[in-house]
């Protein structure tokens, strides 16, 4: 579990996060949603330790992350996997080398053991034939899957995903969502996803936080979205007239 405690983050005079207190649960897909500029990416980067908060705390289970020394933080980070919006795969390395990089850096496994582990995780993300291809030679969806493979190769306890569906077609987005959800449940990890994708909200939103201007505007799960009276949530999730009609018809039926 990860817990944010009264997180405030300012850049100069501009206060981006205004005291976020919330919890992200183990074995669940925790979603951070909100309009552009709401502070989603800043919150994610604070949780993962890429930004330092102006005030407030981030707890990894019982550990206050920002109270740790650099070395202790690195130990925590070895339990963290992250999928970046643009995948952040190393261009000069093949798919296999990208996925193997954390193993090379942090384990004393033999080459054979590493290859077995790499093949296992590539198989897990349905990329059995891509070992020797470079990131530039594969599609955006495949790059995301390689990113996921690299993020889970060390068996992380915490998985962060920054806009995992951005730039993907709806079908591929569903595949990526299902993959993340399955990995979260099977490995019992704490997964935090920063997303704009409304399909993700409805399909895999076990725990959803809606941010607005640096505050939590709504908190719940995907089963509560449709019936919620929160106007900001409804305007955000069902933004287009088509989606509003769809919601109204669903509510009438229920």
């Amino acid at each position: 579990m990860i817990r944010a405690e009264n997180l405030i983050k300012s850049f100069g005079e501009h206060e981006v996060l205004k005291g976020i207190t919330t919890e992200f649960y183990k074995g669940k897909t925790n979603l951070i949603i909100g309009r552009s500029g709401a502070g989603k990416t800043v919150l994610l980067k604070l949780l993962v330790g890429l930004f330092t908060p102006t005030s407030g705390k981030v707890w990894y289970d019982d550990t206050d992350f920002f109270a740790l020394s650099k070395k202790e933080k690195r130990n925590i980070r070895m339990k963290v996997g992250m999928l970046f919006q643009a995948s952040a795969l190393f261009d000069s390395m093949t798919v296999e080398e990208n996925v193997r990089f954390p193993l090379d850096m942090f384990t004393n496994m033999t080459s054979k053991e590493k290859l077995t582990r790499v093949n296992d995780v590539l198989h897990r993300v349905s990329l059995d034939e891509a070992n020797h291809r470079y990131p530039s030679e594969i599609s955006g969806g495949m790059q995301k899957r390689v990113g996921i493979a690299r993020a889970i190769v060390l068996d992380p306890e915490y998985l962060f995903c920054d806009e995992p569906n951005s730039g993907l077609d709806p079908k591929t987005s569903i595949v990526i969502d299902e993959l993340i959800r399955n990995i979260t449940v099977e490995n019992n990890i704490t997964t935090i996803i920063n997303t704009h994708d409304m399909n993700s909200v409805m399909e895999i939103g076990d725990n959803i936080i809606l941010l607005n201007q640096g505050n939590i505007a709504w908190h719940g799960d995907n089963s509560q979205v449709l019936g919620s009276e929160n106007e900001f949530l409804q305007n955000f999730i069902f933004a287009s007239p088509f989606l509003q009609r769809l919601r109204n018809s669903a509510l009438k039926k229920s």
Partner: peptide, 14 residues
């Protein structure tokens, strides 16, 4: 710029 450094930082690489 391509977040490769962030990716390494999160893995725990100095």
């Amino acid at each position: 710029q391509k977040e490769h450094i962030d990716a390494m930082e999160i893995m725990g690489v100095n």
